[in-house]
Design a protein around this nucleic acid. Structure first.
Lengths: 274, 274
DNA sequence: CGGGGTTTTGAGACCGGTCAAACGCCGTGG
DNA sequence: CCACGGCGTTTGACCGGTCTCAAAACCCCG
């Protein structure tokens, strides 16, 4: 009854494996650790229309490198900068009172880190590199100052914050309304989307996180994640081998995503005269 | 084995019942529907240091009234303003693909609505009044424009957005890591805190939402919410009668809040040489 | 080849969901 | 004024999805 895996040719050799060396000229040379990005590159990464600087007031932002396992920032640490992922994979986690860690997100290329630090001037979460990472350091003060002279940039900042909020809302909705299979399906589809947007294959990719981390992110145990993936595999919807995932029936997953395991009763409308 | 309720003297007569008429001079007269607030009042409501306007460039913001059941905004509606709750109780909901509604939050005095509309210029959620509501209309453009001349206000905006984000993160964490009892305990404590911050009793208050709405918010069914409240009642931690809640053993609830029903394993540290 | 971490799979327990019934609250209309 | 009906709440009995605990297989790396 278990999967007799029909292909064993996909392991560590995807083009995704080393995402930080896709285009040697994309943003300058990769020479060990030091590198600068222009505002335009940053806007491109964020998927917002380019902010054009008046004149050639070259505004450059420094890159910083992190190795697998290193922390970008920890909870409570003084906040002074945001980080934009240029390449690599990370996780952001909350540490609950009992010391357990709760995965909040898996940032990758184009995602912004550290936004939760703005409010209290201290980071509210911890960010850890899951692979070699190249991040663009965005000193908050500098960003704000720049925003004042460039309204479009200011709007971009608001946009990105609001977008993060919408994403979190979606997470909360999912966590409280969908069953394990729908959660895992949604996770896979989201990952596929994100890989595709990054220019990689959305059909075949490697997950960078453990089952435990996925489970924490989805509000499930690692065993349930594993089992659910196995079920999808047996159904022929995907093909799983360790952390390698191949999407074989996107429609089936999309469909499953919409079916809540429970809750979600018909909506009641209370209309009141204006 | 069921609760033989030991007191039936607390019903619709708390001072909380009509929270929008606490101080007749607090922010002007309550004369049916029209009322204006200054920037200072807004800052006070948001719990941020007052923004002082240069000179007496009186900047006033209009209030809007909503009756129970009315919608402030709906999903997809064009975004152009935020709303700050001056008085009253609301819920914000997400409508999932199957038409079911998912409660995201229960905004009350001092809370900001509509932030999720900034990104796509369309509201991403729906806000419904759970009681007579008096909201302060904050036209986004106006706010941004004002922010340009008043850096402190601009910071305040960033702060509030970030704060919302942190709150959502906490929600996500709770939903994926805590059991039913811990969720309900946390909900009660949060409500108590918020009432207290509003100047009402944090020990005795009336919930404004149904069990179904609480359940949706907490990712539980209404029956589970009801049962859990009954359990707390039998334990003597609280006293419940319909929507009236009395907190009788705060410490017990605080303690329960920290105990996850599952998950939350000891944290593994992967330290890598710098 | 050995060892630690990760993943898979199984068997059983338990929490929380489902379905159903009774009760309370309250507005409405006879 | 009371009866009725609708809605929200409480409680019960049962069921099923997830978690728990455990063991084995797998992978990577030394």
């Amino acid at each position: 009854m278990l999967t007799t895996h029909t292909h064993e040719d996909l392991h560590g050799s995807h083009s995704i494996s080393a995402p930080w060396q896709n285009d040697p000229v994309e943003a300058g040379r990769q020479c060990h650790g030091r590198l600068w990005s222009s505002l335009k590159e940053i806007c491109d990464l964020l998927h917002v229309p380019s902010v054009h600087l008046s004149g050639d007031e070259e505004m450059l932002f420094q890159h910083v490198q992190f190795k697998t396992g290193q922390r970008i920032h920890t909870i409570g640490q003084a906040f002074d900068a945001l980080y934009l992922v240029h390449s690599g994979f990370l996780k952001t986690v909350l540490i609950d009172e009992s010391g357990g860690e709760q995965v909040l997100h898996f940032p990758m290329k184009g995602d912004l880190l550290g936004v939760d630090g703005i409010h209290a001037r201290h980071y509210a979460s911890e960010a850890v590199a899951l692979s070699e990472c190249n991040l663009i350091l965005l000193p908050f003060k500098k960003l704000i100052a720049l925003g004042k002279t460039h309204p479009e940039l200011e709007n971009t900042i608001y946009d990105v914050l609001s977008q993060e909020l919408v994403r979190e809302q979606g997470m909360a909705g999912m966590l409280s309304a969908m069953g394990a299979e729908a959660r895992v399906a949604r996770f896979l589809l989201t990952m596929a989307d994100r890989f595709e947007r990054m220019g990689y294959s959305g059909k075949l990719f490697n997950l960078r996180m453990t089952r435990h981390e996925i489970g924490s992110y989805l509000g499930l145990t690692l065993e349930t994640v594993s089992r659910t993936l196995s079920v999808f595999n047996e159904l022929g919807w995907i093909s799983v081998h360790q952390r390698s995932i191949e999407i074989k029936d996107l429609a089936a997953l999309e469909n499953l995503r919409k079916i809540p395991s429970s809750r979600a009763r018909p909506r009641k409308v209370v209309q009141v005269s204006l």
